[in-house]
């Protein structure tokens, strides 16, 4: 196939993937909507002491008032995950054909970086979804991916073309893939932390004698989500360290003749790094674990997003892309 055919295929696949992700999002939204209607009555949350034989806190199996709503929620969740896989395959195809069309790695401009970074979110989510039982993140993840892809297609689209010479280097490949994958993990960790805060609040309400909706009741305990967020972010942090503090400076040295120049993008990458270091410290400090640590994880995620979007659009620097 010629470059133009590839470009054409890519331009078909990416919008299709966006639509499929959006459908997955609708399915997950229904999952939550069904759950909102029914209410969990029994307060089963106990401070981590009470544990079942499999080591899972008992609070993971709350009593739901209407059992059939649970089944309907499960079905909606499964359909959502299935659609996410489908969207991911189309998305992957779209990114690969984009690379083939341009005959290089597909992240030479903001459009390409958006489709690649959102692919990274999908990858990280799908890698961890079975292992850590992350189905409940479906709504957040599909929303983020569909939004980024939609925005990329509508506002950032740039036709495929070769790179400007400064962007040629295999260090770029390493640097950007590390940054994209850790960005995907920051996103998953951020979403987990948001849900943690919601669930922790609901649990406190239940402890005080209140009730919790079934969709929240279906989530793992706040404590277990906190642990999962930590694992995902612990995976991201060394990778980000490598991508931003090793591969990035080496590439900058090749391309611009200096390792580190306090360029806005570099500054914000460092700020992201420091915020996540603070997150890890917070988790190890009594009194900071839990709510405050989760807040830091969310701040880190926003800082990461600002670095990717805000810095490119608002602040000029050497990292600005050819044709945005």
């Amino acid at each position: 196939m010629s470059g133009e055919t590839y470009a054409h295929v890519s331009n078909l696949l990416i919008p299709t993937a966006t639509v499929i992700y959006a459908l997955a999002m609708v399915s997950h939204a229904m999952e939550w909507a069904i759950g909102r209607a029914s209410v969990v009555k029994t307060a089963v949350v106990k401070e981590g002491v009470l544990v079942a034989s499999d080591g899972q806190p008992v609070s993971d199996v709350p009593a739901v008032e209407e059992p059939e709503s649970g089944e309907r929620m499960d079905a909606a969740s499964r359909i959502g995950l299935l659609l996410t896989w489908l969207g991911f395959l189309l998305h992957l195809g779209g990114v690969v054909t984009r690379g083939l069309a341009a005959q290089r790695v597909p992240w030479g401009n903001m459009y390409e970086f958006s489709i690649t970074a959102s692919l990274a979110v999908a990858i990280v989510y799908l890698i961890f979804v079975q292992r850590y039982k992350l189905q409940y993140l479906g709504l957040g993840v599909t929303f983020v991916i569909a939004a980024v892809l939609g925005l990329a297609s509508l506002a950032l689209y740039t036709p495929a073309g070769p790179l400007v010479p400064a962007l040629h280097s295999y260090w770029l490949v390493i640097h950007v893939s590390a940054a994209a994958i850790s960005g995907g993990a920051f996103t998953v960790g951020g979403l987990l932390s948001v849900l943690y805060l919601i669930k922790a609040r609901a649990e406190r309400k239940v402890l005080a004698g209140g009730t919790m909706s079934a969709s929240l009741g279906r989530l793992p305990s706040a404590e277990s989500m906190d642990g999962t967020a930590y694992k995902v972010l612990a995976f991201a942090f060394p990778l980000w360290t490598f991508g931003v503090l090793v591969a990035g400076p080496i590439w900058a040295e090749h391309a611009w003749g200096r390792y580190w120049g306090w360029d806005p993008k570099e500054v914000w990458s460092l700020v992201t790094w420091v915020v996540y270091a603070a997150y890890l410290h917070a988790r190890a400090t009594a009194g900071w674990r839990g709510r405050r640590a989760a807040t830091i994880a969310i701040v880190g995620w926003f800082v990461f997003i600002f670095n990717f979007v805000g810095v490119n659009l608002l602040v000029s620097g050497m990292h600005s892309y050819a044709g945005v």
């Binding site: 306090w262 806005p264 500054v267 914000w268 460092l270 700020v271 420091v274 915020v275 270091a277 603070a278 410290h281 917070a282 190890a284 400090t285 900071w288 800082v303 810095v311 602040v315 620097g317």
Partner: peptide
């Protein structure tokens, strides 16, 4: 202390920002 380290890390992050704006 660990809390001071935490505060200093935040200050470092905050302090780096104006240089980019």
């Amino acid at each position: 202390s660990m809390k001071t380290a935490l505060v200093l890390l935040f200050l470092l992050a905050l302090g780096a920002v104006p240089g980019s704006l």
